[in-house]
Nucleic acid binder design. Structure first.
Lengths: 262, 262
DNA sequence: CCGCCGCCTTAACCCAGGTTAAGGCGCCCC
DNA sequence: GGGGCGCCTTAACCTGGGTTAAGGCGGCGG
């Protein structure tokens, strides 16, 4: 890849690992990504990265750490919409959005890269695969939201937990965290409950059952998948919705004048 | 152009009404939309418009009728992801997607306009507001998905029903269907149940309660909102997530004065 | 060193909503 | 015109998961 960019490249490893799951990421794409004006932001666990009602002007990419999109109802009930892992975007839609309709909080310590909205827009008009990769990332996020609806709407508690564990395991692997049999899940049971629409007490019950049944082992935030087949079978997990295959080249983005009134 | 297109313009009233909620839709935008190569498709109630696993090559826009995105688990449980009303898009992401990860079925008789993916892409490189309006539509759809997660994850049955009724009422009004106090809801209680993650028996119970409490009246598929404030208060409904305000001018391209279907 | 706090576990109790079932009504098709 | 079917209603009963509460454990600040 690009020699001059080597140090940054390492920092953005997760992003490249993720995007290259969708498209060929070659020299041109690396150059385009690394040429983006970006500032680094750091958030401590529990910090709000974006608060509902804000009007964002930058797109944010998670460089390291886990975060969560969430909504809090005024009586305190909380729903986690999904989890953000390294390589995920906070606000790709920044150039059309008005006020954010949900918040984002850091779960662990989070380092994020902030890119001005107009620079983000610029990328779409370049003759390389970056715009395409960003479309893929958006598409995948929407698919994850849809799967979250199915999971919480029509699956029972054990199925939901198994399904979420498998999703996060796979997403961790995509970005090079964990391996085929284990991964770190730095998410409290309270947050898992808020993601799955269950009570944290019940999350505890289900996880205990999984351990007793030999499906998983736990050690602090380390999850060891002991019987992946059984887990998959229990919740009918399929990775289809993660759209892990590379995009077909049929609609390669071309150099265009997609520019807001230059 | 505009003269020849007059009949089409009327047919696409819902689309214009919807897009003009986000952006100025002027002559340039009308021309661009009407110049798109499109074919009309008709589906009968219950028909699958898109089946999970298909690889779509066209974007589809609902011209008339209601449809539903849904997923069926292999044991028959069904989850409705959201409802599609006139002016909504079926597959705007067609130019990056591989296999569809969910299905779309016609609820009523549906007329849709099919636009080849590459023509859709073309629109983004033109110097008018159409690309922007399409971004808005995508953003709104994602927001509706998120709201669906919150609704089903952290609200009880009565809140879910009230919230869905208010959302669909508002969305119907945006496209010129219904008025401030009533609208047609051509959706069976079974489908409502599948959208809200409840049983159809319970939907019936909740609706009966709403009628008894004087919140709504029903007559076939007509829903009359008798006490909107109480409904809103019951479920803490806010229209924020529908992003109904016009896009902020920072990326607006050009003012215009066109009014659809005068 | 202690006290507090966040997080997890476990148990006892309870209820919102699921399930099953039976019946009604309107519509369409033979 | 009658039988079947889709859709809705209502009732009786039951259960998955919520709620409440009490206790444990590790980290951390004073």
């Amino acid at each position: 890849m690009n020699v001059a960019a080597a140090p940054i490249e390492i920092l953005m490893r997760a992003l490249f690992a993720r995007l290259s799951h969708y498209c060929e990421i070659g020299d041109a794409e690396c150059d385009a990504l690394l040429a983006l004006p970006m500032r680094e932001r750091v958030y401590e666990p529990g910090d709000d990265v974006i608060e509902k009602g804000e009007e964002p002007t930058e797109a944010l990419i998670v460089k390291s750490g886990w975060a969560a999109r969430y909504v809090t109802l005024q009586d305190g009930r909380t729903q986690v919409l999904n989890f953000l892992l390294p390589g995920d975007f906070f606000d790709l839609q920044v150039f059309v959005a008005d006020a954010a309709d949900h918040s984002v909080a850091a779960i662990t310590k989070v380092t994020a890269l902030a890119i001005p909205g107009d620079a983000m827009l610029e990328v779409f008009s370049q003759d390389n695969n970056v715009g395409l990769a960003l479309w893929w990332a958006t598409l995948q996020e929407e698919a994850i939201l849809r799967e979250q609806i199915v999971r919480n709407g029509r699956r029972d508690a054990a199925e939901r937990v198994a399904h979420l564990l498998l999703e996060l395991h796979r997403r961790a692997m995509i970005i090079g965290e964990g391996d085929n049999s284990e991964f770190r899940l730095p998410v409290s049971q309270v947050l898992i409950a808020d993601a799955l629409g269950l009570s944290f007490v019940h999350i505890s019950r289900v996880l205990k059952r999984f351990v007793n049944d030999g499906l998983i082992e736990r050690n602090k935030d380390l999850i060891v998948i002991k019987d992946k087949d059984a887990l998959i079978e229990k919740c009918d997990f399929s990775t289809d919705y993660l759209h892990l295959d590379a995009a077909p080249p049929r609609y390669r983005l071309r150099p265009a004048s997609f520019r807001p009134a230059s």
